[in-house]
Amino acid sequence: MTRLTVNGRVRVFRGHPFTRLVDVLREGFGLTGTKEGCGEGECGACTVLVDGQPVMSCLVPVCQVEGRRVETIESLGGLERLDPLQKALLEEGGAQCGICTPGMVMTAHAWVRRGGSSRPAAIREALAGNLCRCTGYQHIVDAVARVVRERDRRRGDAKRPSRATSRTARRTGRHR
């Protein structure tokens, strides 16, 4: 028996503790919004947030998230309402076939929430673990940048540098 919080609700999974989180969510709790694309931690379609951080749920046995806070795509927006990120992705054309979309949205959601920057290069780096074969990423990057800018405007701190620094920036400073 494994107890965890999923989208704000305490849930109990009665199956085997080595069941993968992706299967617990999809088959155990009927939350089929989380997708499985490769089963090797490579495509990012199964990305969910654990304690606010993106992880690939195909690589997590449920026993490892006992007592943790899990967020899935179903936590965003509502039946009739889209979250600002979902809305921006719809309007910018960031979702095509849609199979990578839930994982992409969760990665981007974590980025926006923890203060990620609106610089395209930084966003690209943040999304680099989520493969998309349809869009060429441009519209996705545009949508995320737009939401970050909206966030910064709301907070009135558009001039303040973002907290999460870009690893690209750090890497380009490397010695050659």
């Binding site: 931690g41 990012g44 990305t47 690939m56 990665t107 680099a128 673990g129």
Partner: peptide
């Protein structure tokens, strides 16, 4: 630190 930042992607680095 730099090596840790290039292992897989962020979701892999988190685990």
């Amino acid at each position: 630190a730099e090596a840790a930042s290039v292992i897989g992607a962020a979701a892999i680095q988190n685990r």
